[in-house]
Amino acid sequence: MNSVSRQHPIFPAWPQFDDEERGALARALEQGQWWRMGGGEVDSFDREFAAYHGAGNSLAVTNGTHALELALQVLGVGPGTEVIVPAFTFISSSQAAQRLGAVAVPVDVDPDTYCIDVDAAEAAITPRTRAIMPVHMAGHFADMDRLAKLSAASGVPLIQDAAHAHGARWAGKRVGELDSIAAFSFQNGKLMTAGEGGAVIFPEGEKYDELYEKAFLRHSCGRPRTDRRYLHGTSGSNFRMNEFTAAVLRAQLGRLDSQIDTRELRAPLLASLLAEIPGVVPQGRDARVERNPHYMAMFRIPGIDEHRRNEIVDALIERGIPAFAAFRAIYRSEGFWETAAPDLTVDELARRCPNTEAIYSDCIWLHHRTLLGTEQQMHEIATIVGDTLAAV
């Protein structure tokens, strides 16, 4: 492998923090109560996060995987049921269902947006299906118009995996204004973070208010808010967020919009520059996506295999680009098969998911902090990608 000697670009650091986070931590410390049942930071964050996304309620939890698991559970997902998930996603999307004893059913994705293929999801519905889980890949919405029609026609509810989609807008609506529960992650690399954390948001309406109350009970060991006699009303676990995490997230939420504004300026430029490189195809964008927060800058190099893709990623990292290999097809990880897997082989699933097979082998993504860089740095990234492809 030949290398081209150039100075490495210096991108903004991630996570980002300043005196807002420092002050928030001190505020949480000095209130003297460090868990949500005694303090005020988690409750305040829930109100602010719900309002930001146009939701009726938000429930802050320990992490994004638990957010998915809790959302699935309150919709009746458990042993003997199935959940339809995209085959191209981080494995938490399927494992949240599998840990509840439900079979995760992978379906193919769109080759342009990398989001769930609605036709494939429809074909996978059976009498055991309890939920369809679209993943808003890299911040790009799945086709929520068609998915809403499918949900209404089939009676199968949607659960949005919005781990990448903080602040996204689809056809005039925020995530919480779409008629489905959504789950978010605040893991260290996410668009707003406290190292870990998650949230489930519920749209406005009596039906969703009831689901929120069920979720609150289950996330707090089944114990009502005012209980003093250990009268646990349902089974559950401890998914409660602590006060320090919520305090940091309140500060992070305050700067999210300005960061999205910057990424929305940089991402189209970078995509256009990458598209000029022979063989490179950036992730597409549906015109109905009004605001994409760009958790990743993703692009494919169709025709290459996984080995060459990995070599390219390694070379980009050596040149100072925070590059990553795309998610593996979930059915190509051993963990997928440990429990509650479908009664199909890897080869059978691969034949059903040709787009996923191609994308997981030839796709590369760049960390969103690159899109917080300067306009000149978008040109530098494209130059480095082009030089690397020519050299590897």
Rank of each mutant, 00 (worst) to 15 (best):
N238P: 00
N238Q: 06
N238H: 10
F239T: 07
R240N: 09
M241H: 02
M241A: 15
M241D: 02
N242K: 03
E243R: 01
E243N: 03
E243K: 02
E243L: 02
E243H: 03
V248P: 04
V248E: 15
V248W: 05
R250L: 10
R250V: 00
R250S: 14
A251G: 07
A251K: 05
A251E: 06
Q252K: 10
Q252C: 05
G254K: 09
G254Q: 06
R255H: 10
L256I: 10
D257R: 11
S258R: 14
S258P: 00
S258A: 15
Q259I: 02
Q259F: 05
Q259H: 10
D261G: 03
D261N: 14
T262W: 03
T262G: 00
T262A: 12
R263C: 06
L265D: 08
R266T: 07
A267W: 05
A267V: 04
A267P: 01
L269E: 07
L269D: 02
L269A: 03
L270Q: 09
L270W: 12
L270V: 11
A271E: 13
L273T: 03
L273I: 11
L274D: 06
A275E: 15
A275L: 14
E276W: 05
I277D: 13
I277G: 14
P278S: 15
P278Y: 09
G279Q: 05
V280L: 07
V280I: 14
